[in-house]
Each structure stands twice: as C-alpha cells, then as structure tokens.
Design a protein around this nucleic acid. Sequence first.
DNA 1: GGAGCGCTGTATCGTATGTTACGTATTTTG
DNA 2: CAAAATACGTAACATACGATACAGCGCTCC
Lengths: 275, 275
Amino acid sequence: MISSIAELIADRVGTMPASERRAAHTLIASYPMIGLKTVAEFSAAAGVSSPTILRFVARLGFQNYPEFQSSLQDELAAQLQSPAIRTLNPPSPGGGTASPMLEATLDNMRETFRHLSDKQLADIAARLADRRGKTFLIGGRFTDPLARYMAAHLAIIQPEVFHLAGQESMWRDRLIDMGKRDVLVIFDIRRYQDSLLRFAEKAHQRGVQIVLFTDQWLSPIARFARHVIAGRTAVPSAWDSSAALFVVAETLIGAVTRQLEAEGAKRIREMEGLR
Amino acid sequence: MISSIAELIADRVGTMPASERRAAHTLIASYPMIGLKTVAEFSAAAGVSSPTILRFVARLGFQNYPEFQSSLQDELAAQLQSPAIRTLNPPSPGGGTASPMLEATLDNMRETFRHLSDKQLADIAARLADRRGKTFLIGGRFTDPLARYMAAHLAIIQPEVFHLAGQESMWRDRLIDMGKRDVLVIFDIRRYQDSLLRFAEKAHQRGVQIVLFTDQWLSPIARFARHVIAGRTAVPSAWDSSAALFVVAETLIGAVTRQLEAEGAKRIREMEGLR
DNA sequence: GGAGCGCTGTATCGTATGTTACGTATTTTG
DNA sequence: CAAAATACGTAACATACGATACAGCGCTCC
C-alpha cells in the first residue's frame, strides 16, 4: 500500500531516467519543501531543466504540476493535524494507561495553544477585564456549559457578567442592553447553530465585541467576531471534545483574574462576608 | 521577539480592519496551509476578496504574496527539520501566562488518569449505561456546568437522564424518584458545598449509587459514593482547575456511547429526524 | 447633519508560471 | 558499427496568477 508521495517515488525511482532520478533525489532530500516551490526553482535545485521536472511528476501519475503540489500540501496538512507528538512523548513507558482518548485530548490542547499566542490571550483578557462594558456569555447545545463555567467565575470578580440562558426569545431580548462597550462571548462548535449565528449577527450590528470559541473549522460566526479562538476538537469518540476550549476558558479566567487582582480580591472578600 | 508569522499576526491582528482580520483568523485556523495556496483560494476560504488578502500580507510587512509564501515555507521547513523544536509558542520568558497554566493542566490530566484504572472507568461506564435505572447529575457552584455537559450528551444516547438544576428545594424533592437502580453523578470540589453533602447522604440512604467527581482531597461525599474519581485541580491561578475532571467526563461519555452503540445510534437517528 | 477618511470589492492589466513543440544529444539494439 | 529510439534541453506559447487602479460604501469626526 502506497500512502505518501515519498513512498510512491521510492517505488518508481528505479524505472526513471537519470535526470528524473536526480529530480527525485532532490525532492526526497528536502522533502517535501522543494516540491512546493515553482518548477523553475525545483529544476534549478536539481540541476535539470523544467520539462524534466514536469515529466517527473507526470511519471508519478499527476496530470499537472499544481495537482502534484496539492497532493504534497494535503500530505503536509494531515501530518500537521496529528502532530508526531507520539514520537516526542513516548507512550508513557511506565504504567501507561494512556487511553487513546486522553492522548488525543492532550494533543488537541497542545495544538490549540500552539495556534494561540500569549498576545492574543492577553488582548482578550484585557477586553474581558474592561470594566466599562458588560460581559455576556452564551453557548450552543453542548458548549453552553462552558459558557456557564466561565460566567460563574467571571461574575465573581466583576459585576455585569451575564450568562444568557433559556429560550432563544429570552436572550434575543437582551440585545437591547448591548452596546459597543460590551463583550459577547460565544461558544459554537459543529454542528453550528443557526440561532447563535443570528444572535451574533444582531449583536455585531449593535457594535458588540464578539469573542468566539469555536473549532478548527470555524463557526460562521467568525466573520462577526473580534477575537476567534479555534480549538481542536477531534478525538477517537462519537463526540467532539470541548476539552481544549475548556482549558482555554480556564486560562482566560485566570488571566482576567490577575488583571483585576486589586478590585477582584476586594469583591471576593465582600462576597465571603455575605455568606 | 517575533519569530513566526503566526506571532506576527497575533501581534497585529488588533490593528487590522475587519476583513483582514477574517483573513488572519482563517489562516491561523488552519495554519499555515491556506497560506501556501493561491490568493484566490485563500480569499475564497476567508470569504473576502483577493485584494484584501494582498493588503493583509502587505500589512504583515511582506513586499508581495510570493515572499509571504516563501516565509511560510521556510518556517515549515525549519519545523520539519527538527520536530523537537515544535515550540512555535516559545515559553514566553516574561509574563508567561499561557504556558505554565497549560503545562500544569496537562500534568494534572496525566496524574489524574494515572490514578484511574481502565477497570474503574469501565465499571462506571457500565453502570451509567445500565438502562434499568435512571441517571441524575448535579454539581456545585463551579462544577455544575460539568454536570450539564455530561447530561447533555448522555441524554441523547439514553432516556431517563436528568440534570438537577435550580434551587436546592427543587432537586431535593426529586429524591422521591430515586431508588437503588438509579445513579447519581455528583461533581464537588473545594470548597465543598454542604447542600450537596446533605443531598448525597439522603440519596445514599435510599440506596442510590453515587458516582463522585471530586478533587484530590476528596469531598466528604466520598464516604457515600460507590465510585470516586479524584482529579487534580491545582494550577498556577487563583482558581482551581476542573479541566482534568472535564476530560474524565468526556472519556466516560465516550465509553458509555460505545457501550450503547446499537441503541444509541438508533436514538440519535430518531432525534435527527425530529429536528 | 455634512464632509472627509478609510475600508472593501470589481474590473483590468502585466507577468511569472506551467506547458508544449521541436531539435540535438545520448544510449540502446540488431 | 549503424540505425533507431529514447532522453534531454532550448525556446516559444498560453494561461492563470498576483498586482493595481478605481469606485462605492460606511463610518467617524467635526
């Protein structure tokens, strides 16, 4: 079974004429980067002419050069999706329960944070900590608990934090209270919910700043969002995993708390007193 | 110090107009693959026009699109060369907000699962999948969202799943419906809530099987529980982290789903039909 | 409420890129 | 050793791609 272009080449390099073999070796040597560049660069690197490169990819079974490049890209993408963390983190030599589910979840988190800069998190935290506006949170069918979780914490360290619950008509009416100083945190992963999209659009029209937690395929709400957090959700299960988004949420909660240290601590003490 | 294009984007995304920000988000979401494709494909994926993409890369400081692509390729190449240096997000020497938090969370998960045997998980999953009894879920102040999350999933693959919400008196009255065939899933971490303890005790007296999600110091409910899942919760933050428990919950959801495969799938199909 | 500015998409343009035709060189085979 | 077939590069070609000019629109700021 041949699954990668590299294998394909190894399989057929024997039947190739000299120049094409040079092309093959050049490609393998810095696989697959050279293949992503132009025919001219590829040919120069291999020390052959451009037509030779084209004949080379034709022999591999591709109709044209762009098709060949697309294949390489797809391969790369697949490789990047499921990072070779397993090779890095050996499968816990010891008692390694290492359920595939856990491994996938840990990978998802690493991947999610890899695409997430400190700067971005800091920006969002600053926005959430901004006391001039209100904060609203809402989520979809499975993600609403995440919104609740975040709301439960934020509401303690600052006033004017509202989780939008209940029927659609309920929170739709809350739009009236939202303005451009306010922030709306939305959780929306596949299958994206129309009701949330409609709500986001209306909020966006009112100038509300939207912070979107979504999956790597991006909810359509992304187009209205000021900040987008794309978490990895794929796990070996019938369901998608929201764990990565959960951790991002916790991270943000922590960051906001730190920013509001002074006021927040005072608030918390007051609250304790009220018990 | 900015060393990757992803960071560069994160740094400047705040100063970008809406459409360019969409481009940025689209690129980050499937970083960096889209950037290696043509301007037309990129623009289509982002839902903006080609000039916007070009303005976007120009704003990042590139003279033209090919130069931008070359940079992405170089980055990719470096990354592929030494997979160990996959730390695209350097440990942010200064105000490292994300990393310590993430590291601690990942550690927590590993530790949590290390103390959790497959057998134990399987037992709990079997109990939850047992169709002869009802399933009730409840949580504390911060953990109730976890109960909701779990309930949202379980309720889809089997009937008789109830999340206990609202005021204490509300769910206390539900005790009347609970018997020895039923399961009560409780989430309770520090600071443990008296109301939950009282509720757990009464349920226990009625012969209800209790599955407890708690922290490593064990909620007092543990003495009434049939199964105890002790998750690590410590993170460098003002709050405890429920992420490890969340992942255990997801794992259990997956396990139960697998056990109910046949019936569950049928139920899900029926539900889809009802939409 | 009006003027100005900035953002965004449409349409057009020039060119770099992949492609092909053809002639020369090299190898293979009878 | 001759003749044919294959391999390879040069050069011309067409197209798809990135780049640019411009106009419409919405927004902000007087």
